[in-house]
Design a protein around this nucleic acid. Structure first.
Lengths: 194, 194
DNA sequence: CCTTTTTCTAAGCGATTGCTTAGAAAAAAA
DNA sequence: TTTTTTTCTAAGCAATCGCTTAGAAAAAGG
């Protein structure tokens, strides 16, 4: 969706990255099906024509929003990547995510797991593949951090990796419906075991 | 939606409980918004008129389906209620739920947590209250089982209760997207040190 | 300036949404 | 059987869905 044409006449009155960020916030809060193109118009501040000209269709826009979501998550992911604290780093990531997923008092959970849960694993293949790629990256990251503990054997890392990824999926829902104290209980106990 | 009238003319050609069960299966698989009244017609085998005559509207039918879902879950809940094995009983409940949530190879998760995740906690108040009542009952059940262990103090029961309820929410998603081995890793680690 | 090329506004497309209704069909009561 | 009352079929309601399009507006190149 770039402007590689020889000649450019009228220029766009909006910045694509900016409108993607606004769309991301809306999808994140309302879900994929729960967000209509009319709602996107208003939130992004541009006409339907411009949406379709820039992103092809609703699905195309959403795929861009997934990328945007990844970028916004990059901050706390980088913190985890840089951590040398093993499980302590992952625990901090859990707490960081809770703060990240809350905006103006609205608890939005994780856009990726929200979408997997909404559309189900047997829907749109390309879209689901993109979402699975993302959770795969988180999984790998968790396993790398577990490996920082030399006392853990390969089998333990495998098992605890699945446990942590599953707990992270749970955190998406938990962060939406639990109180702060309940969330803390949930996270603290997750890591009290390992 | 009962027949309390003085005089009854033509009798219904369908059994309400039977069509509710068929509707439950559809809502469970497709989600609330993802299930249209046209789809319900075909699955339930009755006309739209009959749906609205018996249940008022789509939401009314869905509320009945929540009750139906509870009844179907009653089997494994009773097993847990009867258990004197404390945490062992809860762990068995987790495994029972995974089997319960899978039908004809379709992994459907938990209808209640699916709906909470889909509609969000700030939507339809009455509906959400019904769903929260359900998870409250599960929460109470978990705490009762934790109390079977006399070595656990009140604070521990509170904390582990939130942990187990959160882990159960996670299991709903995990059961949809993980392999059997990954699910086992997830469940086993949850209970490895409590 | 004028021409070209693109973006914009606004209307409208067919399909689907939840829901309603008129009238035929059927079964219980008289 | 006839009347009464309800359930059924099937059509249709306004609203919304994702998406398209005709034509006006605007900006760059000549």
């Amino acid at each position: 969706m770039q402007n590689n044409h020889q000649q450019m006449a009228r220029s766009k009155q909006y910045n694509e990255q900016e409108v993607i960020e606004k769309a991301t916030a809306l999808f994140w809060e309302k879900g994929y099906e729960g967000t209509s193109v009319r709602m996107l118009e208003k939130e992004m501040g541009i006409n339907q024509f411009s949406i379709y000209a820039s992103f092809g269709n609703k699905r195309g826009l959403f795929l861009e929003c997934i990328q945007c979501y990844k970028k916004r998550l990059k901050g706390i992911i980088s913190t985890l990547e840089a951590s040398k604290d093993g499980l302590g780093g992952i625990k901090q990531y859990f707490y960081d995510f809770v703060a990240f997923s809350k905006e103006n008092g609205i608890k939005k959970g994780c856009l990726v797991s929200n979408t997997v849960n909404e559309l189900g694993p047997d829907s749109d293949a390309q879209l689901m593949q993109e979402l699975m790629k993302f959770s795969g990256e988180i999984h790998t990251l968790f396993r790398d951090k577990l490996k920082q503990d030399p006392t853990k054997d390969m089998e333990t890392i495998e098992r605890q990796g699945h446990y942590l990824l599953g707990s992270m999926l749970g955190l998406s829902l938990v962060s939406k419906v639990f109180t702060q104290k309940q969330i803390a209980d949930y996270i603290e106990t997750i890591f009290s075991n390992l």
